[in-house]
Every structure is written in C-alpha cells, then in structure tokens.
Amino acid sequence: MQPIKNIKDIPEFDLLTGGSSVCAGCGPSMGLKLALKVLGPKTIIINSAGCMTLLPLFPNTPLKVSWIHNAIENAATTAAGARHGLDALGIKDMNVVVYAGDGATYDIGFASLSATAIKNERVIYICYNNQAYGNTGFQCTTATPYGSDTKTTPRGKENPIGNTTIHKDMLKLMGVHRVYCATASLAYPVDFLNKINKAKERDGFSYIELLGTCATGWNFDPRYTIKISRLAVRCGMWPLYEIDDRKLSLNKEFKELKPVDEYLQLQGRYKQLPPDGVIKLQSLVNEHWAELNEFNEKRYV
C-alpha cells in the first residue's frame, strides 16, 4: 500500500462496526477502527485483557476480522503462536496484530512482549496507552504519567501529587530490541496509519504505541478526545517519533512546545495537581523533548 497523504486518502471501509459496549468517544476503539483500514480483512487481532476485551460481547462482535482474546500478560506470545501456526499452514498474507493496553504492555506482559520482539516475530504490536488500568476503573500502571490521579494513586493530605513514579520510557526499551517502533496519536491519523503501513510491510516485529485518549478515565467530555490527543502532541506530553534500526526520527517538530497547562486543565485526572507538581511535570516533558531533539536523525539506542 502506498503511503497515505491526507485524511481524504484514508480507505473508505470499516472492519470494526458500531454496537460494541465500549464507552462513547473511546479513543482506543477509534484507533483499532483506523488501524484496520490499513491492515485489511486478512488480519487476526490478539487482545490482552483490558478495555478492548469488551469490544465483542457474546453473541455479538463488532469485528469483521479474526480476534483472539487469551489473558492479560500473554498477547505477544499468543500472537507469536498464531504466526507460527499460519506459517505452518503456509499462509503468508495474514497480519497478526496485538492490540493491548498499557498495563498489559508495560507491566504484566513485558516479558512476553520483550521475547517476541527480540526474536523479531512477524507481529505488529499496537499498545493503546490510556496511561492506566482502564477497564478496572483507572488504576496506576508504569505508563501512568507523573502527577496523574488514579484510583491506586489518589491525591490526599499525605501525597498531593498522585502518581509520583516517572513512567517507563517504553519506546527506548523497545528500541533496544532493534525493531521498528513508533508513537502515534489519534489527532494525526495519517501519520498513525502510515506507521501501521510501514509495520505491515516489515518482515518482522513492530511496536506502535498509540495514545489511547480516554474520556472516562482521564475525566473529560468525550467530545474532546481528538482535541486532547492533539494537545498532548503539541505540548510534548506525547511526542510523535519513531525508532528504526536504533535511529530516532521526530515526526512532528515544533519550534516551541505549548506549556502543559492547557492539556492538564482539560482533564479531571490532573485538575488538583499542585503548582510544584505541574512544574515537575513540565520539566520532565522538557527534558524528554530536549533528548529527542538532540538525537533526532541519530543513533538513539
């Protein structure tokens, strides 16, 4: 498939129907709908336990492609198994795609992800990162940003910051596996789909991390799903970049980042973050942005 140039080029078919029981305005559901436009009907989605597990609910499924839900920590290795099974049958034209949340990816499923990546299995791993365990009601993962209020890092007298752990630098971790990795945003669908397309053309493992903008967990009006996704990129909380063969490329460059304030203020999870927390968060963002700019178009990992 040729790279997509603008939104009008995005294929006009949908392999994810409506009628599922995920929340109104669900970012991860939108992400899957979009990804399937590039992946096409010959695709098996491997899902780990999380919000997206509720897309199908017996006897109905919104999926027009195959789907395997195994458990939470093993989507990558389930995918590896499916790939080996297809290889054994001589079927080469099917995509095996993981669609897993950040808890399943950063935390409980990291061993199976790492093993599948380092063996360069022909699997596209898409992490829809909504920065918490969403399906259980928004608890902290190691993808949760500093300063986020979650159910297991609530703000209170003893700790007004909420989550004080600095999230894992997952792209860097995946980069050292020498696979193609990229971040993506729903507000930049052309960039996202071209990254899926790039992954699809690879004869190996790819890791794409989509900011899984989540109205319910982040506590905002679902109409702002795209607005917030766009702001995340603009303020440097979710920079768009890729690592290919250990080299870094920034995909959206800005002379100056917007301050994080506007992004934070739109979301309930940051509403009560005290000023020193905002300052700390801003400095973390600045530090990461400087690092990405320093290594842009250079060997990064």
Binding site: N70, A71, N74, T77, T78, G81, H84, A88, L89, A111
Partner: peptide, 28 residues
C-alpha cells in the same frame, strides 16, 4: 521437517503460544 520448533521465554508463554497456534487450527 514439517514442525516449527520454537523457544519461548516461559511456560506461561509456551501455553499462550500453543493457544495462538491452535486457534488457527494447527496441531500443537
């Protein structure tokens, strides 16, 4: 000759991969 032998990183992943392969209809 007709068998794909694969090293996994844990027994949990052994059975997970077995499930993935069996779900596409092959003998494991």
């Amino acid at each position: 000759p007709d068998t794909d032998f694969e090293r996994m990183e844990s027994e949990h992943s052994v059975m997970s991969a077995a499930i993935g392969a069996a779900a596409v209809g092959v003998r494991v």
